[in-house]
Design a protein around this nucleic acid. Structure first.
Ligand code: MN
Ligand code: MN
Ligand code: MN
Ligand code: MN
Lengths: 151, 151
DNA sequence: ACAATAACATAGCAAAGGCTATATTTCCAA
DNA sequence: TTGGAAATATAGCCTTTGCTATGTTATTGT
């Protein structure tokens, strides 16, 4: 270990435990990323075309079909979706709720980025990753800073 | 596949290829996260205490020491650090440069979050994950929106 | 009705990022 | 100067998330 200077400049280092918590939180968020992206995408596909097929999910995610098949099994096992063979996947109540929350947050992050002057293309790209690391408090702050869309 | 309504409401779905690009980009960013966090942390530890030891890195990241050992080998193989046995790790030129860039971006993201009204604790937590998904364009936008610190 | 095609399933592999358990090495204090 | 503690190394395991290759099943157009 190293324990020099008890009250020195401390440069930019925060307390070890504090920093640890941040890293742990970030790793945690990463573990739910995929689930969130999947249910959100499934909800969008259903809303758009009435069904969500493996091939469409795979194409939009940019991964291979077996990758999607495996993940759908997991989502099914965890109670987010129901698979009707050769008939697409459907969201359970839990799935719908997670999709709603995820989509809302995603949309807010994307709009927020645009509102601070980022181009729509960049906002879309960055939001896809950023969304999963935005806590409720930060989301509220972003909402406040985003001009409401005239409906 | 599904090809109904050629010019219907289209709900919120963007073109498949566009969406694919976003997801690919996010996955790409995730692959550099660890490297960035490591070199940044190593730079901070060296700046703060003159050396970066495995145990300290492990404690701050909140992972086990062998996890760090393995990653340090990778960082070494990829030319970011040099390992002096039982004497800590040191950054190469490349490593220092990546650390500088990462730290700068990290700091900007964190300050930016504070500037839109997020508490410092939440800003710190969220920034740890968000930073890796912020492109240069978005970083510039964040800089513009963050009041400069009086030096 | 049925063959072609599209969709899906399954097997087997790999890399990344974690872990625990344990062996080894260095350092320092008595 | 040497024994014990701390630091590091290594082995072996696991999960997640991706891949390719290939087999199977439904759907559908003729
Ligand atoms: Mn999303
Ligand atoms: Mn996403
Ligand atoms: Mn960082
Ligand atoms: Mn980080």
């Amino acid at each position: 270990m190293n324990e020099k200077h008890d009250q020195a400049i401390e440069s930019s280092l925060v307390a070890p435990d504090t920093q640890m918590e941040s890293f742990r939180q970030a790793r945690n968020n990463r573990r739910s990323e995929l689930v969130e992206d999947y249910v959100e995408l499934i909800a969008d596909l259903i809303a758009d075309g009435g069904e969500a097929r493996q091939v469409d999910i795979a194409q939009r995610l940019g991964v291979a079909q077996p990758t999607v098949a495996k993940m759908l099994k997991r989502l099914s096992a965890e109670g987010y979706i129901q698979q009707r063979p050769y008939r697409g996947v459907f969201l359970t109540g839990t799935g719908k709720e997670l999709a709603r929350v995820s989509r809302e947050r995603h949309q807010i992050v994307e709009s927020f980025l645009c509102s601070i002057g980022v181009s729509v293309e960049t906002a879309r790209m960055n939001a896809e990753g950023i969304e999963h690391h935005v806590s409720p408090e930060t989301l509220e702050a972003m909402k406040r800073f985003t001009p409401k869309r005239h409906l």
